[in-house]
Design a protein around this nucleic acid. Structure first.
Lengths: 232, 232
DNA sequence: AGCCGTCAAGAGCACTGCTCTCGTTTTCTC
DNA sequence: GAGAAAACGAGAGCAGTGCTCTTGACGGCT
């Protein structure tokens, strides 16, 4: 029964996939703003209006590219972190960090779509939020594991979170259950440090100033793990 | 002599300024990609081609907006930091951080222009690099002062920079002369942490997760000062 | 066999950055 | 002060964009 019906759906799914593939390639060469439906259609030998049978608007195409990007990044981070010994929490942290950086460096425009300035006029729909937490969820679980294993030993003299921040960690603690506030804040700080570094590198802030970025990043992420107290 | 010659130049300077003002306002409402020369011309009661007498291309207009942005941000940071007692290095660090954040939050689109994903097809000319270091120069001099005052006391157990990074700090040390490598790296880490946090907040990564962002930011920047060893 | 939904095609709208030309006005030079 | 030169605003026009609407053909269903 579905054989005949699938005939149509199969070619539709195939064309949809071809559109996103071409769009992703176009994204890689032209950047987010240079993504043109007409150019995609031209490359497919279609007329531009036909694209709208598959994606009702340019923003919808962008949305699926964004979701795909979050999933690709999240998967890369998950895989890299999963390959580490469970007890080596610092190693897991570094592996996750390097996975983020490696993916971002090799997919700069897609990374810009996820973590750069929001595309003007584009509002990310709710569909994206499920995929967007995959990478940070990895970080959260590794911190949570480290805490449970007693491997979180922050240095002395670390400032304590002020009382004004009481209860502010609720949204983040879901990703690292059982972890006390000061460690949650340290994890957030490490998180922003990681993406701040990667964004600087991808967006060209280190041009002409840093040579061996990989080594510098590695050291920076080891420093970022210090307030977190991730001893090896 | 210049009275007559200035007649034209004065109206030219005035119109140029009016164009950038309108463009900046348009930037604030529409975002970088929505900046339209025709819309600016329309708002000025000019015909679109007349704008090209003042800015040879859209990118040139963007460039002056970027330079103005760097200068505005740099000035805000300079002023905030200069208002602190010279010996209070942690206070100077926090003041500079808050100045960056305050400016970014109140000028989100301009901040996106400076520290977000690069505008597709736009290549920042050399003119911008002079203005772009003003903010980070403040951070550098503050760290340099702290070092000279003996106020840099990093916690024990801080990882030392690997030998692979020997000499990589040259470009940064110009901003903080006399500072040893490990402190330079800690400063870079604080720098990326600062802008990572601000970018996350401005670009909406904290939406629905953080309430009191100012307090959270303050605590994050205190944490970021720990590997740097900025005791008060 | 007939029907209805899906599809590609094409024309068209409003918009963009940018170029070129054409008079006009202002400035500089002799 | 008269004439040359430069600067200027207006307008038309080109190529491109996202998106809408209509038209006609094809395929799967009852």
């Amino acid at each position: 029964m579905t054989a005949s019906r699938t005939a149509r759906e199969r070619v539709r799914a195939e064309l949809t996939r071809e559109i996103t593939d071409i769009a992703r390639r176009q994204l890689a060469t032209e950047g987010a703003g240079g993504l043109s439906l007409r150019a995609v259609a031209r490359e497919m030998g279609m007329v531009s209006s036909a694209i709208y049978r598959y994606f009702p608007s340019r923003d919808d195409l962008l949305t699926t590219l964004i979701i795909d990007g979050y999933n690709a990044l999240g998967e890369a981070v998950e895989r890299a972190e999963a390959a580490c010994p469970r007890a080596d929490h610092l190693g897991r942290w570094l592996a996750a960090c390097h996975a983020v950086r490696d993916w971002a460096v090799s997919h700069p425009h897609e990374y810009a779509l996820l973590y750069g300035s929001p595309v003007p006029g584009y509002q990310a729909p709710q569909d994206t939020i499920a995929a967007r937490v995959r990478d940070v969820a990895v970080l959260g679980s590794l911190v949570s594991d480290a805490w449970r294993a007693g491997a979180v030993r922050p240095p002395a003299g670390l400032p304590a979170p002020p009382t004004a921040l009481e209860g502010e960690t609720a949204a983040f603690r879901e990703l690292m259950p059982g972890v006390p506030d000061e460690t949650v804040w340290a994890a957030i700080s490490g998180w922003t440090n990681l993406y701040g570094w990667v964004s600087f590198e991808v967006f060209g802030q280190f041009d002409n100033t840093l040579g061996d970025r990989r080594a510098a990043f590695d050291h920076a992420m080891r420093l970022a793990a210090v307030p977190l107290g991730l001893a090896e």
